[in-house]
Amino acid sequence: MTDAWEPQVNGVVRTLQSVRNVLEKQGHLVKVISPDLFYSLPCPTYPEIRLALARVASVGAMLEEFGPTAIHLATEGPLCVAARRWCIRNDMPFTTAYHTQFPDYVSARSGVPAEWIWRYIKWFHAPSQAILASTPSIRQSLTDHGLSHVKHWGRGVDLTNFHPGIAPHPAMQDLEGPVQLYVGRVAIEKNIEAFLKSGHSGTKVVVGDGPARASLKARFPEARFLGPMFGPELASAYAAADVFVFPSKTDTFGLVMIEALACGVPVAGYPVTGPIDVLTPETGATDEDLTKAIGEALTKDRSACAAYGRTFTWEASARQFLNALYPLYGDRAAA
């Protein structure tokens, strides 16, 4: 069950798609109940996200028809709220996941204090059998807010696409170095402005799209905005970069970091959740001064980055997800 699904392009959707693909290859039946199955409205300030107007009875009917052996609620939106109510009403156990620093995200967009949003987060996740989280610092954050029933669910890389030795993207081959790359949604909560304002020499490249793209492009004409890329084309963009810059302070993990690492590209970021959990001294650098972090990351060995990036697989992620699920009936079987 998820409020984030196709055609959205973000880390939540990519994680769910990748894990589903692995589970289906293993013979599991996976039913995704998503906003496209209901009448929906665009989310204020984020129209790409559709908010499903789903009745509890309608969601429950879909669940009963499928007959699941476990129920997972991936997001905190209205569709999963409806499913949550149905599960509680029918004494059905379920798991949830904390994919995004939702309180910080809402605060960045609306100015509402993050602690106000934490009240909702606690209400939503408290009845679950387990909350799946990707990093130690996120697990600690949840625990600090009274949600201690947390289990680890890591992330992976499509190693068939993202690996060293890929030819650099033609649009990035002749840029003045060092080439500093950002990949992801171009929106205020991603803190891209901090990257574009950082002072290291070279060329800054932004791959992705979003509501802040036009204004950032106008304000930073020296940067290259190449639009969204996927698969092999995205891998070629990573291959052309000397350093990958992850300026976000609101992400829980950052799939793009491990994709860059798998391509042999060191990563620079702030010392916040995501970078501090993913990066090692050999593969990246974090600093409150992003310019310093970029300079230090440029000294890292690309082969060490690639070797570390290969340790993140979707097979391992799917295994962790499966082990965290709670069965609706009978004893729990080892996955």
Results as ranks from 00 to 15, higher is better:
2 T>Q: 06
4 A>P: 02
9 V>I: 15
11 G>I: 10
13 V>F: 06
24 E>A: 06
33 I>S: 13
39 Y>W: 15
46 Y>V: 09
57 A>F: 05
59 V>C: 11
71 I>C: 11
75 T>M: 05
76 E>Q: 14
80 C>G: 04
84 R>D: 01
85 R>T: 11
86 W>K: 09
86 W>A: 02
87 C>V: 09
88 I>W: 04
91 D>N: 14
94 F>N: 01
94 F>I: 08
118 W>F: 04
120 Y>F: 15
126 A>E: 12
128 S>I: 06
133 A>T: 07
136 P>F: 03
140 Q>T: 12
147 L>V: 12
148 S>G: 07
154 G>K: 07
156 G>A: 09
167 A>W: 02
172 M>F: 01
175 L>T: 03
175 L>N: 04
177 G>P: 09
178 P>V: 07
179 V>F: 04
195 F>D: 05
208 G>N: 03
217 K>E: 15
224 R>T: 01
228 P>D: 05
238 Y>T: 03
242 D>E: 05
246 F>H: 14
247 P>N: 10
250 T>D: 02
257 M>D: 01
265 V>A: 00
281 P>L: 07
282 E>Q: 15
285 A>F: 00
287 D>K: 02
290 L>K: 11
297 A>N: 09
298 L>Q: 13
299 T>K: 15
300 K>P: 01
302 R>W: 02
302 R>P: 10
309 G>N: 00
313 T>F: 00
314 W>R: 08
314 W>D: 08
316 A>H: 11
319 R>Q: 15
320 Q>S: 03
321 F>H: 12
331 D>L: 09
335 A>M: 07
